[in-house]
């Protein structure tokens, strides 16, 4: 069976509470209604009615709910929290040191305001007007990449494979 249309991008969209989502099927069958609150996840019975073999990664648990059965363990989260905090603080210290350092240097060092580096710019002006923006982007990319990488490597070890088995 082929499903049609554009994708939903988030399961958390269902956290709003009271409304119902529809899954539209391209085979002409009526749209399927699914309660969409976080605590009203699609039931196993409901999904079984609409699509018996929806996806092997859905876990039809004994409590009558069906969901992706991916979860973190407290130990994983605690380890990641500590590492993320250390990394965030390290990047922040670097960021503040450079940003405020430039500010202090411009105020205290004559050459930063009066000498000329290129095209008439003083070192202080070129840093404040252009250079620091590049620095911010570099720090941001580095920090975000590292944070994402840590989460990928340290969490979800016991979770389901990210790619479904191809038939």
């Amino acid at each position: 069976m082929r499903w049609a249309g554009k994708p939903c991008t988030t399961i958390d969209d269902m956290s709003g509470g009271q409304r119902t989502n529809h899954i539209r099927l391209a085979d002409g069958s009526p749209p399927q209604s699914i309660p969409s609150a976080r605590h009203r996840r699609p039931t196993a019975a409901h999904l079984a009615t609409s699509e018996p073999a929806l996806d092997p990664r859905f876990d039809s648990s004994a409590d009558g709910y069906a969901s992706f059965s991916d979860a973190d363990t407290p130990a994983e989260v605690d380890a990641v929290f500590r590492l993320q905090r250390r990394i965030a603080v390290a990047h922040f210290v670097t960021f503040m040191f450079v940003t405020l350092g430039v500010s202090v240097a411009i105020v205290t060092l004559d050459w930063a305001a009066t000498s000329r580096v290129f095209g008439g710019f003083s070192p202080g002006f070129v840093l404040a007007a252009i250079g620091l923006y590049f620095f911010f982007v570099i720090v941001a990319v580095a920090a975000a990449s590292l944070a994402n990488s840590i989460e990928d490597r340290m969490m979800g070890a016991g979770s389901l494979p990210s790619e479904p088995p191809r038939s």
Binding site: W3, P7, I11, D13, H22, I23, P31, G156, S159, P164
Partner: peptide, 25 residues
């Protein structure tokens, strides 16, 4: 934790692969 992110991404991937669309009521 990032379980919520993984679940959301997986659901989105499944939906894309299946070509399904979720539409509000």
């Amino acid at each position: 934790g990032s379980a919520g992110d993984r679940n959301a991404e997986r659901l989105a991937r499944v939906t894309v692969e299946s070509g399904a669309e979720w539409r509000p009521a």
